[in-house]
Design a protein around this nucleic acid. Structure first.
Length: 506
RNA sequence: GCCUCAUUAGCUCAGUUGGUUAGAGCGACGGACUGUUAAUCCGCAGGUCCCAGGUUCGAGUCCUGGAUGGGGCGCCA
């Protein structure tokens, strides 16, 4: 039976062997502190010259960062440590002693870290994110399985463009052009007619040359499809689903969220009802014509801009103060280093804030000038979600701007029964879905309107010819949900090896 | 595709109006120190200033073009 760091509390005062890697090392005369990670957690292991002898001790001092080893020693309680326990080492068995590990225990730039992604995954933050990802995936399956959904796999090679709007990756399928799937939805609809309720969970490919914090070329999408569901049943499902996943993470990833320094206040708010707005109401709020709790978007954003400016000033003043203190001299070297590092950190923060400072007026402008009838842009989503601290669902969109397969509102055919769920804190669209058109003639008209190749959709039209029923579904972007749950600045950190515009390696 | 900001040591960054031999910290390496939490202290090594042109007596610094990266828009999950 192997022992893992996460289980150390059950081995108090007994002798165990850990297998892992040296995450960091601190040395003192006759003492070496090894921070060991084994995948399950982190543990400080103490090597004491007096207890272990010179030969074993020299092994410890020679270890480079990320060397692999086995350590045998006694598990001792120590409240100062993260897990509450440390190991007093009795024997060191080096598997590989290595030197010059490229990632240091300090601030690095994103390009450098992305080039080192295969090693970066070992770092604490990345380790925490990947564990949350694992738990989110598990929670998603749990939710649908307990609700009686059947998981299905949609094909990845497709012959048609499902929505025809976004760019597809083309490949060669035995001499025929084939495209990598950008959605499994149409296949999901077929399966829902066989199983009642289904969900897909698979990779999705979009060849959009988007350089933003919310886009990947390859990402994972969950697409449930439910027979006999209308738009409102669909929104209930989205809400229950997102609430369940967030609750699971709050319960099971406490340590990871703490490591990520995630303030969970907003996540805890998901127990409350999500906001539901029609497109018309959402537009009125975005344009500042309608207020939320007495505040308009314009007032909130102008305040945001003011706050941003204040923060920049405060950081600059803080840096000037630190620089003056260093220049005055007499400061201990360790303190100087700490201050220099803080100055660098502050500078990075200032850069980000200055980007916001440039962007907020653009968003405000775009919100004020929003043209009724158009789709929301990234800035409109940001402006809208800024008004609420729970997820916002916007439904009943002008049918012209939405996908061909969405059902019209029977009371007002101007609107299609699509729904988008926008996450709070500026994360924007995480879910897109809606009730599907059931009428064959309406679908044919829409396919022609969108100039899509009718022959590619014959099989899809069959679903309306043989036992057509009301049905609805949605697609959730795993990485966007994760970025919000972990409050990460970019989706690229939520997937082990991101594929995006300009990034194919490692 | 468009807009914007950036590129100086392995990493994170300074570099004044264009002026002698381009600096600091971290990391690495060598040494000191018996409880450290990114330990600390001393020493040492480390440079194609992104590339190509141009202006100039003189360019890391100014100009033009290009490459790469960050962010935003469009598009989307």
């Amino acid at each position: 039976m192997k022992t893992y760091i996460k289980d150390l509390s059950t081995h108090q005062d007994s002798l165990v062997t850990l297998q892992g890697w040296v995450q960091n090392k601190r040395e003192s005369k006759g003492l070496v502190f090894l921070i060991i990670r084994d995948g399950s957690g982190f543990c400080q292991c103490i090597v004491d010259l007096n207890n272990i002898g010179e030969e074993q001790f020299n092994k410890a001092t020679s270890l480079g960062q990320e060397s692999s080893l086995r350590l045998t020693g006694k598990v001792v309680e120590d409240t100062r440590q993260i897990g509450g326990f440390e190991m007093h080492v009795q024997e060191i068995d080096i598997i590989q002693n290595c030197a010059n590990y490229p990632i240091a225990n300090k601030e690095h730039g994103i390009e450098f870290l992305m080039d080192q992604r295969h090693l970066w995954l070992r770092s604490k933050r990345q380790w925490a994110i990947m564990r949350v990802r694992n738990q989110v995936i598990f929670a998603i399956h749990n939710f649908f399985q307990k609700e009686g959904f059947v998981q299905m796999d949609a094909p990845i090679f497709t012959g048609n463009a499902c929505e025809g709007t976004t760019d597809l990756f083309e490949t060669d399928f035995y001499g025929e052009p084939a495209y990598l799937s950008q959605s499994g939805q149409l296949y999901g609809e077929s399966m829902a007619m066989a199983m009642g309720k289904i969900y897909t969970f698979g990779p999705t490919f979009r060849s959009e040359k988007s350089k933003t914090r919310r886009h990947l070329s390859e990402f994972w999408m969950i697409e449930p499809e439910m027979a006999f569901y209308d738009i409102f049943d669909n929104m209930d499902c989205i809400e229950d689903f997102v609430r369940f996943v967030v609750k699971e993470i709050l319960d099971k990833c406490k340590m990871e969220l703490e490591l990520l320094e995630r303030d969970t206040t907003i996540l805890e708010k998901t127990v409350e009802a999500f906001v539901r707005l029609t497109y018309d109401d959402a537009v009125a709020i975005i344009k500042g014509e309608k207020d939320v709790d007495g505040k308009t978007t314009i007032a909130v954003l102008e305040n945001d801009l003011l706050e941003t400016k204040k923060q920049i000033e405060a950081l600059k003043a803080d840096n000037a103060e630190r620089e003056a203190l260093i220049a005055a001299g007499g400061m201990k070297k360790g303190k100087v280093n700490f201050n220099l590092n803080t100055i660098d950190k502050n500078k990075n923060l200032i850069k980000q804030l200055e980007e916001d400072e440039r962007n907020i007026p653009q968003w405000l402008e775009s919100a004020k000038n929003f043209t009724y009838g158009e789709d929301f842009g990234g800035s409109d989503e940001t402006v809208l979600t800024r008004m609420f601290d729970v997820p916002v669902m916007v439904y009943d969109w002008p049918h012209e701007i939405k996908a061909f397969y969405l059902k019209r509102n029977p009371d007002n055919p101007k609107f299609a029964r699509g729904v988008d769920m926008l996450a709070p804190e500026g994360y924007g669209e995480v879910v897109g879905g809606g009730e599907r058109e059931t009428n064959e003639q309406m679908l044919i008209e829409k396919i022609n309107e969108h100039q899509l190749p009718m022959e590619e959709f014959e099989w899809y039209l069959d679903l309306r010819r043989f036992g057509s029923v009301p049905h609805a579904g949605f697609g959730l972007g795993l990485e966007r949900l994760l970025a919000w749950i972990c409050k990460l600045p970019h989706v690229r950190e939520t997937i082990p090896f991101p594929r995006m515009y300009g990034r194919l390696k490692p």
